[in-house]
């Protein structure tokens, strides 16, 4: 079969909503795009543990401490599921982690912002996880089977994350004046970065979007961003708080909320590594990995010894 025929067959499968599985033929670019997307998603989960992990030791009640630990731990699990999905494309987790540590691979820029107060735990859960979930729900139907299955598992587990974030803020919004101020301040700081999570405007995408054609993604950046804004504008009312955008208003013609212009300068700077915490986050990941090296080596050496012992016994 010629390359052209294979590609045609492949696209037919995609169009018929037949999932692509690891051993199936796939265009090189499809493999690469998936590998990059899944591994960056995995890196985002792992780096994303840091800004929240930051508050585990200071969580203000035992219940909140347990919830936060469970949530950060879930993110480790999600990173693990995603690395596993990416490994089916022929790249080892070690290699992906090396790429993260060398700065070659990227992760979601949102995690380069600092978590400054306890209210940030609420805002991150509500806004950041809220934005992530919109993307992830879409990805449950992505065309690559292992990615879709990982996303189904992740979405099941994520559902508590956004709820606990909102509930954390709800308690603050009914608390003391200081707590209310803390709540509003966190929303102010996390709102715009959350909108940036959806990426540049569709009009900035000059090329026809192969990701959509291959059904790796199923909605555009702007569609998802609009869906997010419409959802959050309603929810923020329940908190009695406001969103830091004077241009935010209902557009009767579009049946959607209009919103102000995102600061794309800031966006690109954070992507390029100039965010407030880029360095700190990568350093923390590298340190954990490097300090774990002797541990991993010892476990492997021990497993080897034990295997030999058993073999000698059997012989």
């Amino acid at each position: 079969m010629s390359l052209h025929d294979l590609e045609k067959l492949f696209q037919e499968k995609i169009d018929k909503e037949i999932k692509i599985e690891p051993k199936d033929w796939m265009p090189d670019a499809y493999r690469k795009t998936n590998l990059r997307q899944i591994s960056q998603h995995a890196h985002s989960e792992i780096v994303g543990m840091l800004p929240e992990g930051n508050w585990i030791s200071r969580a203000p009640s035992l219940k909140r401490k347990a919830i936060l630990i469970a949530k950060v731990q879930d993110e480790a699990g999600h990173g693990l599921y995603l690395y596993s999905a990416a490994e089916t494309l022929g790249t080892s987790r070690e290699q992906m982690i090396d790429d993260l540590h060398s700065g070659k691979a990227k992760y979601s820029s949102i995690f380069n912002y600092p978590t400054l107060t306890w209210a940030d735990m609420g805002a991150v859960g509500w806004l950041v996880d809220g934005a992530a979930i919109l993307n992830q729900v879409m990805l449950c139907r992505t065309s690559y089977g292992p990615y879709a299955r990982a996303m189904v598992r992740i979405c099941k587990e994520e559902s508590f994350h956004q709820r606990q974030g909102f509930e954390t803020l709800l308690v603050l919004s009914k608390g003391t004046d200081e707590q209310k101020a803390m709540c509003q301040d966190a929303i102010n700081r996390w709102w715009w970065p959350s909108l940036m999570m959806f990426g540049p405007k569709d009009s900035e995408s000059t090329n026809s979007d192969q990701s959509i054609k291959w059904k790796i993604k199923r909605k555009t950046n702007d569609e998802l961003r609009q869906q997010f804004v419409d959802m959050i504008v309603e929810q923020v009312k329940l908190l009695g708080m406001t969103l830091p955008d004077p241009e935010l208003k209902w557009n009767e013609d579009r049946k959607h909320y209009d919103f102000g212009e995102i600061n794309w300068d800031e966006f690109w700077n954070v992507v390029k590594g100039n965010g407030p915490c880029n360095k700190q986050r990568l350093e923390a990941r590298k340190k954990a990995h490097e300090e774990g090296e002797w541990v991993r080596a010892a476990a492997l050496a021990f497993a080897e010894k034990r295997k030999n012992k058993l073999n000698t016994k059997a012989a």
């Binding site: 670019a29 795009t33 990059r36 997307q37 899944i38 960056q40 998603h41 985002s44 790429d99 700065g103 070659k104 691979a105 990227k106 992760y107 979601s108 820029s109 992530a132 993307n135 999570m197 959806f198 990426g199 540049p200 900035e204 995408s205 000059t206 090329n207 979007d209 192969q210 990701s211 790796i216 993604k217 950046n221 998802l224 992507v271």
Partner: peptide, 14 residues
């Protein structure tokens, strides 16, 4: 193909 979507997925690798 140059994919310019920037969610988790596909910030281009350096």
């Amino acid at each position: 193909i140059q994919i310019k979507k920037f969610y988790y997925g596909d910030i281009p690798d350096s």
